[in-house]
């Protein structure tokens, strides 16, 4: 059995026996892997507190030649997700990123750039970044890395120019915007405003080295709605965290002042800005 090392994000921990767990990790060098962590639940476990959701850890594991689970021999905690005890919105957005990593990637298919993106995004979420742009940036970048980026500059069906209208059709099946001719007879169409489309193009084109572009208040809801529909279409089902993320992003934006609440001079420190406990 070969011993391998990598950085990894903990995606899921399931109790396996009295003292062991099965852990799903998204590793930088080996992609998504499932490992057996023997003795992980003992008080003097060799994994310390590294095997907790959203934690980034340095792992050593033994690869099994058969189809069985790999064996985790070491896990050293590099960074813990601290917002779990401070801000539910940040926690739910962190969960959402884990859900996307779990659902969009395949076992043993490495994507170091996706790992770096997830690592950077989780750190930003944990350290107080405005949630809506960082989550949308992660979604676009992850889809681009995995080959599912939507086509937004021209017609995704025929490559023709988009009509000069206030609202453009976005075809989920086609994976992008549609001209009026190609729109005919298509199902699962979302109508998107030209303003939102301009912003979404920026997100679609921003390289990983740059952080997320600005996300104006006016198009936040529309952008989130379009992306949620598109991801649900790609996965074939609605991710569990979608409803949590939409609420969390809006509430955190109100609290940090990134979004102005109508009727209030400033949302920062406003009496209604406290996040609700209802997810």
């Amino acid at each position: 059995m070969a011993s391998e090392k990598s950085l990894a994000i903990v995606l899921r921990v399931v109790e396996f026996s009295e003292t062991s767990c099965v852990v799903t990790l998204f590793s930088r060098d080996f992609g998504k892997i499932g490992v057996l962590a023997k003795g992980a639940r003992r008080p003097k476990s060799p994994f310390e507190a590294a095997l907790d959701l959203l934690a980034v850890c340095r792992i050593v594991f033994l690869r099994k030649s058969s189809d069985g689970l790999d064996l985790l021999t070491e896990a050293k905690l590099e960074r813990r997700f601290r917002s779990a005890s401070r801000d539910l919105g940040r926690l739910y957005c962190g969960y959402y990123l884990l859900e996307l990593l779990r659902e969009l990637t395949h076992q043993g298919d490495p994507h170091p750039d996706l790992f770096d993106l997830a690592d950077h995004s989780l750190a930003a979420i944990d350290h107080g970044a405005d949630l809506a742009p960082i989550v949308l940036w992660f979604e676009f970048a992850a889809l681009r890395i995995l080959g599912h980026a939507p086509r937004l500059d021209d017609c995704a069906e025929c490559g023709g120019a988009l009509p000069d209208l206030e609202r453009i059709a976005f075809g989920q099946v086609a994976g992008g915007t549609l001209c009026q001719r190609c729109r005919e007879g298509q199902r699962q169409i979302i109508s998107v405003s030209r303003e939102a489309l301009c912003v979404l193009r920026k997100f679609n084109e921003t390289s990983l080295e740059h952080g997320p572009p600005g996300l104006p208040d006016a198009v936040r809801g529309e952008s989130r709605g379009l992306m949620q529909h598109y991801i649900a279409h790609l996965l074939g089902h609605r991710p569990r965290m979608h409803s949590y993320v939409a609420t969390a992003a809006i509430r955190t934006a109100i609290r940090t002042g990134a979004v102005q609440v109508p009727g209030e001079t400033s949302a920062r420190g406003g009496g209604n800005s406290r996040p609700s406990s209802t997810p």
């Binding site: 779990a84 401070r86 539910l88």
Partner: peptide, 8 residues
């Protein structure tokens, strides 16, 4: 993380 989230 889940325990802390529940407590919060």
């Amino acid at each position: 993380v889940e325990g802390d989230g529940t407590a919060l």
